[in-house]
Design a protein around this nucleic acid. Structure first.
Length: 303
RNA sequence: GGCGUCUUGGCCGAGUGGCUAGGCAGAGGUCUGCAAAACCUUUUACAGCGGUUCGAAUCCGCUAGACGCCU
């Protein structure tokens, strides 16, 4: 029997969690989360992770399974997620995948090329070099170590340059050489659902949700992780703004406004990312569940 | 009522006769291990009317509005 993943994407605050639970309930299955911040158990409020009740109703994987102190990457996630999906598929043909992190969804659905693990020190070193000497030196190094990547990647983007270089330095081979190996075979089919709404409505929902987060105690949550503010996991909307407030750089009101603004921008980028997946069937966030189920059942039966 | 200062794109703001400031917000986009991250692109505006000039956001006049001071 064929195995399936029902993937749900969309901007933050659109109602993915709620839909995923309905679908998982209907198909009596489990949920794989592909959200790069909901992994972290220390920060449930600001990441709008599923509530305890929601998690009790349906088994959620990759929610609060990590600490902000852990090292974690998309590559790790891809491996763990595929393993988890394979296990569920042994006794259930359908798995629900839900998440707003485009790259993480892509990693599960299509797979990333395999890169050797390189020491974290290399990146630390590269970051230091970048901070002290700027990007030019790194660009030059990339040009000699990997001319193909030099042509292909956004040279203005330090993250991209540093990533390519850490592979070059760590392996002694060109970063680009690891790219575009034969497509990974996934032993499941995917049904992709997108949730959308008018932009103004999405923004309204975001604004409201941020107020709700504050009311639920976001500030205390941020306080509890303040000492770790430099961690990547906390370079996150909702946290970086409140850090500024806690350190006396701005009022709570202006921090709240910043969170709203940055969340709106995040949603905009999510639209940009998900728009390019042309296999996605889009639904208005108010679409009745029956309509979505009809589509899914049609897709399930036509194979 | 009189006198003075001011009026630049959604907002802030530089510009004092010819050389599209800049920033913010917004919008569009990129994306193979930091991804809620990081990065890229982007809107020719000078209150209105008239005048001077080859040429006016910039000089002159009138009108309107804002602010201040005086009566």
């Amino acid at each position: 029997m064929d195995k399936y993943i029902i993937s749900i994407v969309g901007p933050t605050g659109i109602g993915k969690t709620s839909l995923s639970i309905k679908l998982a309930t209907y198909f009596k299955t489990e949920i794989i989360s592909a959200d790069s911040r909901q992994f972290y158990k220390e920060i449930p409020i600001g990441t709008a992770a599923p509530s305890n009740e929601e998690q009790k109703a349906i088994i959620h994987h990759f929610i609060h399974n990590k600490s902000i102190l852990d090292k974690y990457s998309v590559g790790d996630f891809e491996r763990e997620a595929i393993e988890c999906i394979t296990t569920i598929h042994k006794h259930n043909p359908i798995v629900v995948l839900v998440g707003g992190s485009g790259l993480y969804v892509q990693a599960v659905l299509e797979g990333l090329d395999d890169f050797p693990e390189v020491s974290a020190n290399i990146r630390t070193q590269l970051n230091t070099e970048f901070k002290t000497n700027g990007i030019q030196g790194l660009q030059k190094e990339l040009k000699t170590l990997d001319p193909i990547a030099y042509e292909a990647i956004a040279l203005d983007n330090p993250h991209r340059v540093i990533r390519a270089l850490e592979i070059c330095r760590g392996t002694g081979k060109a970063y680009s050489g690891f790219l575009n190996k034969e497509k990974k075979k996934r032993n499941f089919k995917t049904i992709q659902i997108g949730l959308t709404a008018e932009r103004s409505l999405v923004y309204e929902r975001i604004n409201r949700r941020v107020d709700l987060m504050i009311a639920k105690g976001l500030v205390d949550e941020v306080k509890s992780v303040l000492e770790h503010k430099h961690l990547n996991a906390l370079n996150t909307v909702g946290y970086k703004e409140v850090f500024r407030y806690l350190e006396g750089h701005c009022s709570l009101d202006s921090a709240t406004e910043e969170i709203k603004k940055n969340s709106r921008r995040f949603a905009k980028r999510q639209f940009t990312w998900f728009k390019r997946q042309d296999k996605t069937k889009w639904y208005d966030h108010r679409a009745p569940i029956e309509e979505i189920l009809a589509y899914i059942n049609k897709m399930l039966s036509c194979t």
